[in-house]
Amino acid sequence: MAARNKRVGVLAIQGAVDKHLAILEGLGVEATRVLGEEGLVGLDGLIIPGGESTTISKGLSRLGLWEPIRAYARSGGAILGTCAGAILLARACENHPVATLELLDLKAIRNAYGTQVDSFVAPCDAGGEPKLAGMQCVFIRAPQVGELGPDVEVLLRVDGLPVLVRQGRLLAATFHPELAGDPRVHALLLAD
């Protein structure tokens, strides 16, 4: 399988790091925690997990990781951001804005569905990526994405709204593929 012999890092400042590591291990990928610039060297993919975007954003500043991650992306590195990770990849964000990587040409709206009592699971429309048909999407205090640039393709929608998008080798999910235990989004990250 294509995923073998690949190495993927999970940014480990805060959040659902373990769940991503478990999915990656299930795919036969060498999975590592990234807490510094040296952790980005030689990666076939980087995951920015769900968690609190303010906490992770402040951690990126403290660790001086903004430019190294941007450089990794510019050099063709693949990144998957889930939930908070999707916010951090965005060009901009609203509703209590946080600093972002400004790599993905869209705007993220934080906590767009409400608080935890509004979290939900929903089936998706996989018209943009039939390989993902039937995926159950878990939304936890989730963001929405809007103002998508021309280079951003929508792979999955829920209730008509984009929930998984791709721009070059960057993937952003507003839901949590790692919580449902479905490895197909992670496999997309590793597709050449």
């Binding site: 959040g15 373990d18 968690g51 939930c83 699971v121 936890i140």
Partner: peptide, 16 residues
């Protein structure tokens, strides 16, 4: 499913 959503938020708080 409801219980998984609740645990999901707890997962997001890990490391914090």
């Amino acid at each position: 499913e409801a219980f998984e959503l609740k645990i999901g938020l707890a997962e997001m708080l890990k490391g914090g």
